[in-house]
Amino acid sequence: MKSPLPWLLRLAPLLLVAVCAVLLIFLLQRGLGTFSLSLLFGDVPPLQAIFGQRPVWDGLWPACAGTLCLVLLTLTLAFLPGLGCGIYLAEYASPGKASFIGLAMDILAGTPSIVMGLFGFTLIVFLRQTFLPNANTSLLLSAGCLSLLVLPVIVSSSCEALRALPRDLRITAFALGMTKKTVISKILIPQASQGIAAGLILALARAAEDTAVIMLTGAVANAGLPAGLFDKFEALPFAIYYTAGEYQNTEELARGFGAALLLLLLSVLLVLTAHFLERRYLRQRQGFHAAGRAR
């Protein structure tokens, strides 16, 4: 039988693909030509630029380095609280507590990133009026606010990874006389590590692309390489935003397109990696589970 699908329904996905293709081709056309070492380092020799011996004025290297520091610092801050909360949620929490923590994480996940930025900004205003009159927006503050942003991602992915483990594993381990602590730290977490890693990579991608938070908490257009935890810094997304409004010549505009393409590639790559890790993890677990049942 011929399907009675109206043409409008066929048009919808085609339109979506077409719009995205137009945007992507536009970005590629304007940005691909700029991809070279000089996009990152300008006319400074790369090694000297990387080690900060000579400042880079017309390249993206300071912004990339800033984003790298920011993302690593964010993960450092968010990893342990996220993992711990995920373990608690999956293994210990009573239904009431689980629903309360779930609510808190849902609220956090739904909070717009600009509000997280405002939280950091409020914190600095508060600190300035009270204990630390010299406090200012900085790398550490941005990383702290970003870690709030990625916390729900880490919590839910580590919780899901633990829940996806076959129950036989737990029962066997308990039957061997292990205490719950040993089971969790020696068996469940190593078994779930791939799923947890997928969540971390996803969190990395979120932290790398977010602009609104760092806009309010210390990203600036010209700071050079990140100097320290309490200094202002440059970041890739902020550089893109800044270029769109304030570019002076075609060269800067071309660099903006290069930066946009770079960030797009980075986040797509990260998310694809996380996606495949997660898929492989779930397939392995379910395969293991099914095999256990069949026996």
């Binding site: 536009f26 991608a205 692309e209 602009t211 893109i240 769109a244 397109f257 986040s267 797509v268 996606h275």
Partner: peptide, 18 residues
């Protein structure tokens, strides 16, 4: 799934010039 991860700043940047 990939579309959900496109950075909004990249989307806005492309739209500003297109």
């Amino acid at each position: 799934r990939l579309l959900t991860t496109v950075p909004t700043v990249v989307l806005s940047f492309a739209a500003v010039f297109l």
